[in-house]
């Protein structure tokens, strides 16, 4: 893993895979991901209707010869070389310990985190049974039901897929649109009992032991704090038209630059980055 790489990719989610499928990373490239497999957090919800392209990409993408893919390997810091210099240094944690990796160019493709309930000031208690989709999907995959009567709150296609997954496992699910209903109270202790919504001035409550809060994503950039990489108010990495950050040689792509965009955009951006950074067209 030591030595100097031409390119280091932080994150093996959809945008990175899409770039690799389009030819990026054929030479002296190293890629890291927190998870034990490629495919990003969305993978836990797949396969699912509407996500066929993403699923196909995850299943079919071959890691090319010149690319070392490290899973269970989390990039916890980035030390850019400023003033047009190189290399840049990534601090990586994996089983064997913490190490540093140097690369001439870096592609930040570490995606987003789902916005948790705690980020909105919703009055009420802090019961068990309130989570975002990623947690629900993982618990289901481990063979456990996170609740028996669920409310999935959100508008995204991903919210609907999550609701369907729960229903398939035998959970009674209500899907509530976040654009139509405002969440005004979460009650219950120790477990969730009731959720209250306001729609067009009318308040109504629903009994539930699971609330899947699925209102959107935020950029996963806490690990870039203090690195000197410019981020916007909402945490998203700022890039120019060529996906380059304020630091020459450091690029970013996917949800990490645009948390409100769809997975389809990540796939498209991945292709574009591949051609810009020198993948085969």
């Amino acid at each position: 893993m030591s030595g100097m790489y031409d390119l280091a990719i932080a994150g093996a989610g959809l945008s990175a895979l899409s770039a690799i499928a389009a030819g990026l990373g054929r030479r002296r490239t190293i890629m890291f991901d927190y998870q034990d497999e490629p495919g990003g957090f969305l993978k836990h919800a797949l396969p699912a209707p509407g996500f066929e392209t993403a699923w196909e990409l995850i299943r079919s993408t071959r890691i090319p010869q010149g690319l070392t893919a490290c899973y269970g390997a989390t990039v916890v810091g980035l030390l850019p070389a400023f003033e047009g210099g190189e290399p840049h240094t990534l601090v990586v944690r994996q089983k064997q310990g913490t190490s540093q990796v140097q690369a001439k160019r870096v592609l930040i493709a570490c995606g987003g985190l789902e916005i948790p309930r705690e980020h909105a000031q919703i009055p009420g208690s802090r019961p068990a049974g309130v989570m975002t989709p990623i947690m629900a999907h993982q618990l289901l995959a481990q063979g456990y039901l996170p609740g028996k009567r669920a409310i999935v709150y959100g508008d995204a296609h991903y919210s609907r897929v999550t609701a369907q997954r729960l229903a398939d496992a035998g959970v009674a699910v209500s899907l509530i649109s976040a654009s139509e209903a405002q969440l005004v109270a979460i009650e219950g202790s120790p477990r969730l009992q009731r959720v209250t919504f306001r729609r067009a001035g009318e308040t109504s409550s629903m009994e539930a032991d699971l609330l899947v809060y699925s209102v959107g994503m935020m950029a996963n950039t806490h690990w870039l704090k203090g690195s000197g990489i410019s981020t916007a108010e909402d945490g998203a990495v700022q890039v120019d038209a060529g996906y380059e950050t304020n630091v020459p040689g450091i690029y970013a792509v996917g949800t990490v630059i645009a948390p409100s965009l769809d997975h389809v955009d990540s796939l498209a951006m991945g292709k574009e980055v591949a051609s810009l950074l020198g993948g085969t067209p």
Binding site: P127, A128, G129, M131, M135, L139, L140, Q142, G143, Y144, L145, P146, G147, K148, A169, G170, S189, P190, R191, D209
Partner: peptide, 18 residues
Amino acid sequence: LLALNKNYDGSSPVVARV
């Protein structure tokens, strides 16, 4: 896991096996 609570009794993140 069904008895592993977040905090108080009855606060496990999971309620049953699939």
